[in-house]
Design a protein around this nucleic acid. Structure first.
Lengths: 210, 210
DNA sequence: GATTTAAGAAACCAATAGGTATCTTGACGC
DNA sequence: GCGTCAAGATACCTATTGGTTTCTTAAATC
């Protein structure tokens, strides 16, 4: 009882929705949890709402995660793992960076969800630490920039002497700040400003003015 | 009944706590509300906790603000108004900027509180809009940088041709990003990196290498 | 097909939230 | 000193939440 669709009937139009189990169910729950987080934020990231969105019930969640904070941790981890960025290789630093920034620029702001969670767990004593959440999410993005930048060094586009870690992080730091402050997709012209007016001038061997 | 201290007695050690009224009370509430926001975040910014922190009771708040969102709006406004930064004038761009960044670097992260509220009102339909909260808070900080930068232009420290609005915002954008991502006071050496390795090279007339 | 295991529905509990109503009492104007 | 008004305590209502329990039933295993 309670299944979504009639199941005994082999009627054509009926979705044969079966009861999910094990790993499949778990994946579905974590996907739903991430959806919930991006849609309504940490504040409404409750066991009830996640269960509803995953079309299952609370005990199913509690059998897997002791607390809501545990679920949060796994949700971010799950998404971080799924979200490996494609490292572009277009031949120029500029378009590589623009491609990378463009990828991060989805309609439903994943940064908002991440920072929302970080702040939540920052103010609450319990739960995952903010940096823990951060790491899972930002690590692979950082390494993507690193690869793009390394190739630019090989091509001679970049003066390696200027590449401090902070400068390597600059494009995504600025992107993230913009995404957080406006809570909207970052317009293309802003991405170009970040790359053309700030990052490239800082790292190119030949200074722009002379 | 219910007053904090005995009041009829003119005993020396006893705090003569009187009942606050009108504007005085309102200020006290808004201060307490801001404290609550920075201490425990948007999630725990509730009428009950604010009332408790202000040592008053819920009806007193509801007589002034119809909803919790109204109170939030006024709280941020109140603090934004109170928080006019001192514009330093040390004679060099570098130390002006470091002074300005240092000011923003309080122990209890006001950016966390602000972004926490922004995200809250972003995900909730109701309440003040994120940009509304942002404006009240960030406007005067921006103008402080502007003043410092203008003076540097007059002194010839800066090539005005390079001063796009985005570059003027760069120091505080990077500061804000750092504060948000680490949720700790930004260490001095990071402030110096922002100023010395990123901002100054971008705006000085004579390029660093060559 | 019988057994085991887990999914899911539903009801429940205690705590906390937003918001309101009632009543007492302190502060201020006169 | 007295009347008025607002501060503040308290209790209350309803909704939501974290978390648990119980029971039914579907799915995998043998």
């Amino acid at each position: 009882m309670g299944e979504i669709q009639e199941n005994s009937d082999e009627q054509a139009g009926a979705t044969v929705q079966t009861r999910r189990r094990g790993a499949e169910l778990e994946r579905a729950i974590l996907d739903a949890a991430w959806e919930q987080l991006t849609a309504e934020g940490y504040e409404h990231f409750t066991i009830d709402t996640v269960a509803a969105r995953a079309r299952t019930s609370k005990p199913v969640l509690y059998r897997r995660w002791k607390t809501r904070e545990d679920l949060l941790r796994d949700t971010v981890r799950h998404r971080g793992a799924a979200d490996t960025p494609v490292v572009p290789d277009t031949g120029t630093l500029r378009s590589d960076l623009l491609a990378l920034l463009g990828q991060a620029n989805n309609a439903r702001n994943p940064m908002a969800a991440l920072v929302s969670s970080m702040l939540g767990s920052y103010y609450n004593q319990t739960g995952p630490t903010p940096s823990e959440l951060r790491e899972t999410f930002l690590s692979q993005r950082g390494s993507a920039v690193r690869q793009v930048v390394d190739r630019a060094v090989e091509r001679g586009e970049i003066d390696p002497a200027r590449l401090t870690p902070r400068i390597v992080d600059l494009p995504f730091d600025l992107f993230r700040n913009e995404a957080m402050m406006t809570l909207k997709p970052v317009p293309d012209h802003v991405l170009r400003q970040i790359v053309d007016d700030i990052f490239i001038p800082l790292v190119t061997p030949q200074p722009p003015t002379h």
